[in-house]
Design a protein around this nucleic acid. Structure first.
Length: 122
DNA sequence: AGCCTGACTCGGA
DNA sequence: CTCCGAGCCAGGC
């Protein structure tokens, strides 16, 4: 990768357990680059490393982000997710509440839900 | 250099 | 539920 920033993203994504998913924003935060959700998307867009389970990354709405959820890429991702046991609802939508993966570092006393709210950037 | 795009996100209408 | 605008930022032209 050109930038260590991308390496950090891929490292986080590689840690996602089978059958779980993370959102772009959470991957960015876990990698130490809060507010860089778009960078994560761009990093995956140009991804060539097959070791990275890119299909375990979806947008914050629990939808397939590729091509608006439609197209070959989206179909492939849906296929891979289903193969791992991720429950899909409707067209390219999944139950985030059941399969969302939150790294231990994210957990904070009291909250135990999601990362602190961030709007776009820092 | 500037301008446009996008595998993002969030709050509001 | 959907649609829209604003914020961010690396890449491509």
């Amino acid at each position: 990768m050109a930038a260590p920033e991308y390496e950090a993203y891929f490292r986080v994504i590689r840690r996602i357990p089978r059958g779980r998913v993370m959102t772009y924003g959470d991957v960015a935060i876990a990698a130490g680059f809060p507010g860089r959700a778009r960078r994560v998307g761009y990093a995956l867009h140009g991804l060539k490393d097959a070791r990275v389970p890119w299909w375990r990354v979806v947008n914050a709405q629990g939808r397939i982000a590729i091509d608006g959820g439609r197209g070959e890429g989206a179909e492939r991702q849906r296929d891979l997710l289903e193969a791992e046991g991720v429950e899909l609802v409707g067209e390219g939508r999944l139950r985030l509440a059941d399969c969302r993966y939150v790294p231990p570092a994210f957990r904070s006393p009291g909250a135990g839900r999601r990362a602190p709210k961030r709007r776009g950037g820092p």
